[in-house]
Design a protein around this nucleic acid. Structure first.
Lengths: 215, 215
DNA sequence: GACTGCTGTTACCGCTAGTAACCAGCACGT
DNA sequence: ACGTGCTGGTTACTAGCGGTAACAGCAGTC
């Protein structure tokens, strides 16, 4: 029959695509984001044009590769946001979830956060102008903003405030996490607590240091 | 005399270097960070090998180019951190300084924040492992951490807390600023106030929305 | 048997970063 | 006057990149 045939074809090509993605992932995790299409094709046991037939573009491949991980990460963050406890518990759980993710798979994290796209000549594909990096950060910011808008009573400008906070808090998590991942100056628990402290206003509450000109 | 000779030589080559940097800046600001060495050389009225004699490497050139701007930006941030007023005023002034900088010269900002390095093969130069992006963010985080450590009384773990906060707050400023610069959903004043609100603990203080499952 | 749609290939293009080899001028010491 | 360095500059090249055209084989459908 025909639909069955088509179905088989579809699943077959999707399976193939999946295989290629796995090969690409292996190479990218081994060689970093600057892995060449040749290398990826070789790892998959084929040659370049097939990759281009499947993904059209290097950034297409990378986007497909990234989407899976971003989706997974965002799902775990959403789950952490719904964890039991009071608000601070939830925030800390979310920070923990994020840091745990980047800690256990730093290579994936580096790939997602620092894709280092090189549009080179044309610049037609998707990316509008200079928008070439870190869509993960944006998506996390938007997601958190949504959750905040849903759950908190922020007055007339609520939606705007929620989005600003979403992006801001995500950025705090990102930069602190990136730095922490490189230097490992303390335990994850400590880091989470210190970041939550900032969000709970300790920066505004703590005393000036004796003898300083004040801050 | 000989030392005078040497002096003239030295200043001459430095002036030349400066000229080359200015030409490079013109091209980078026009074509984005993916400007080719050929284009830069052409803009300077010379050919590639001279660029390589002066800067050794593309990333060398870009680093030299970036250093000037990062130094300038960090200086203005430091100044804002020393502005008169209470602590919240200073924080808002600093946010304003940063946002104003990225707003008035978005091209420079894009270049500094998303350099899109392509180490390609060797990977010998400077950058340790996957460390290929955004040294500006790190430097801002470290600087702010220093200032916080100097001025605030943060107890026994003070230095660590200060660094965490420095990187975290800078990250918040960065991500929110990047998003704001792209979407322009509100005025700079509003953005500054909302971010300062988070830092002053409004996230922990605001009420749950009626009917939500709580946050 | 002809057509379609997938698999795959080889061989190429235009571009890039980076380099080797060479040339011209100008201040030197002799 | 003569070579001797040093510097700024060039042409001409390499190796590798992303990306593509053209072609070949092999399923299943009409």
């Amino acid at each position: 029959m025909e639909t069955g045939q088509r179905e088989d074809q579809r699943t077959a090509t999707e399976r193939r695509r999946h295989e290629l993605l796995e090969a690409a992932e292996r190479v990218v995790l081994r060689d970093g984001p600057e892995a060449s299409m040749n290398a990826i094709a070789a790892e998959a046991g084929i040659t370049k044009p097939i990759l281009y037939r499947h993904f059209g573009d290097k950034s297409g491949l990378y986007r497909a590769l990234a989407r899976r991980h971003t989706d997974a990460l965002l799902a775990t963050l959403r789950a952490a946001l719904d964890s039991p406890g009071d608000r601070r518990d939830r925030v800390e759980a979310t920070l923990h979830a994020y840091l745990s993710a980047i800690e256990t798979r730093p290579q994936v994290y580096r790939f997602l956060m620092h894709p280092a796209e090189t549009p080179a000549a044309d610049g037609e594909k998707g990316f509008d102008v200079g928008r070439h990096s870190a869509p993960l950060l944006r998506r996390m910011g938007e997601d958190l903003g949504e959750v905040i808008a849903e759950r908190l009573d922020l007055g007339p400008d609520g939606p705007l405030v929620a989005r600003v906070w979403g992006h801001g808090i995500v950025g705090m998590m990102y930069a602190a996490g990136d730095w922490w991942l490189g230097e490992r100056p303390c335990s994850r628990d400590q880091l989470v607590r210190m970041l939550a402290d900032v969000l709970w206003g300790r920066l505004g509450a703590v005393d000036d240091r004796a003898g300083s000109q004040g801050f």
